[in-house]
Structures are given as structure tokens and as C-alpha cells.
Design a protein around this nucleic acid. Structure first.
Lengths: 117, 117
DNA sequence: TTCATGATTCTATGTTTATAGAAATGTAGG
DNA sequence: CCTACATTTCTATAAACATAGAATCATGAA
């Protein structure tokens, strides 16, 4: 049996997810989906609200889904997209972990911030 | 007088920062810089450790600096790059805020995760 | 089957990004 | 000034991404 089957290194996964978020239209899409809640939003409605249509919307959604940040399920003749909150939270934690790595301690607060608030 | 001087909307700034992180080499760079601590790391050393050289490294660093995630300061004939932890933490918070927006409550925990642990 | 709707795939074009080597800039020391 | 070192800018090329319209596929209703 193979004892080292890690498919993709954490760094690659994180970079893919960040790249998926590194676009205004996609970030706007994610926002709408968050507001839509766990039920999700049909792609048509999504495009109408954001101002992106057809193939372009599919293009962006594919990246978000591929990055694991968004899930999709059929509902009759439409497809509902919803945010994978766990994935988003995990990505956020990764970012904080990177930030605080070897900085001294188990990261009690997000970071040793310079009196931000 | 102009009454609408907001330079860049939050969404644009966030997208820029995420795009800066959406690349393996840049994410690797950030990691090294985090481990280097607040003192920073000269660009030459950085390239030697990561396996990126000269102009390519400058290219990536410029994006990280432009996104506000990395700062640079001269130290004699070299330039020390260091992570702006506050910016990274802020980006992480933005991500969580997006995730939990309108989900009900002031976000006590990162997200209403589905029994992840 | 036929029609209408919702989404994707295909095809094409323009833009941005990544990478790399050579040349140029800035800094420190003799 | 001249040399050595560190980093950037310039130039070029290949790859990836963004956008859009037309055609195609999938689902639901009559």
C-alpha cells in the first residue's frame, strides 16, 4: 500500500482558493450567495443581480466550485449555488495560521495586531 | 469640493489582495516572510530559498506590496521584505465577515460550521 | 413530440499574467 | 572614479484568464 497519497499540497489548494476569490465579479458572486443562505440561488437570478450573463457566469462559478468554495445542486430546471461556509472558514483559518506561524504561541488572537481597534 | 473621494471600494481591495495570494510562488514567498519575522528577509535570500530569481521575484513581490500584504525597507544595499500582519489579519476577517454576513448574529465563532471537529 | 426555460459548451478575441535574460539603477567600499 | 553587490526595469514570449454570442444540452409542461 502507498503510504504517501496526499493528492495536492495544502499550498496548492489554498492558492487555488485565493485565486478564485481574486476577482471582483467572483467576490461579488460569493457575496450574493452568502446572502442567499444555505438554500442557494439560481444562476439566472445571480447574473441578473450582479450584471454578468450566461457563459461568463458559468465560467466564474466553475472556478468557485472547483476551488471548493461553492456547491451546486439541481432544483428542477435550474441550478442552485450555495456557499460552502466550512471551506471559506477553513481558508480564513489558513490565512491566519500563515500569518501567525512561528510568531510565538498557539495564536490566541488572529494576530499580534498593532492596536488596530 | 468633491464629496465622493472614496478611492477604491472594499471589494476591489479585497479582490486585489486575494489575487495576490492566488499564486503558489507568492504564497510560498509569504510563508518565508512570515517565518522571517518582523525584521524581514532580503530579496536575494528569498529567491534562493524558494527557487525564484531576479525579475520574477520582483514581479511577485510587487503584487504583494501593491496589495498591502508586504512592506519593504532598505537596509544598506539590500531590500528587506516583511509581512504586514495587520493586513493579512484584516483580509482574513473580511473573509469570515463575508461568510457570516446576514447569517444571524455578530459572528461569535468563525462560522456556523457543520460539526467540523 | 413540441415548446419554453435554465444552464453549459463551443468558438473567437482581447487582456492580463508568468517567466526569463540582458541591461540599467542604486548602494557601499577602496 | 571604479568595482562589487542587490534589485529593478526593459524586452520578448508563452500561458492563462475574461468576455461574449451562438449553438447545444437538460429539464419541465402541454
Amino acid at each position: 500500500m502507498k503510504t504517501t497519497p496526499p493528492p495536492l499540497p495544502e499550498l496548492t489548494l489554498a492558492a487555488t482558493a485565493f485565486a478564485a476569490l481574486g476577482s471582483e465579479p467572483r467576490l461579488a458572486i460569493l457575496r450574493r450567495l452568502v446572502r442567499a443562505g444555505p438554500q442557494g440561488l439560481p444562476i439566472g437570478d445571480l447574473g441578473a443581480e450582479i450584471g454578468v450573463t450566461g457563459s461568463v457566469l458559468t465560467h466564474h462559478l466553475k472556478q468557485l466550485v472547483s476551488a471548493g468554495l461553492v456547491r451546486q445542486q439541481r432544483d428542477g430546471r435550474r441550478i442552485l449555488s450555495s456557499v460552502d461556509h466550512a471551506a471559506v472558514a477553513a481558508l480564513s483559518r489558513f490565512l491566519v495560521a500563515e500569518c501567525c506561524a512561528d510568531m510565538g504561541g498557539p495564536a490566541p488572537s488572529p494576530c499580534t495586531e498593532p492596536s488596530d481597534g
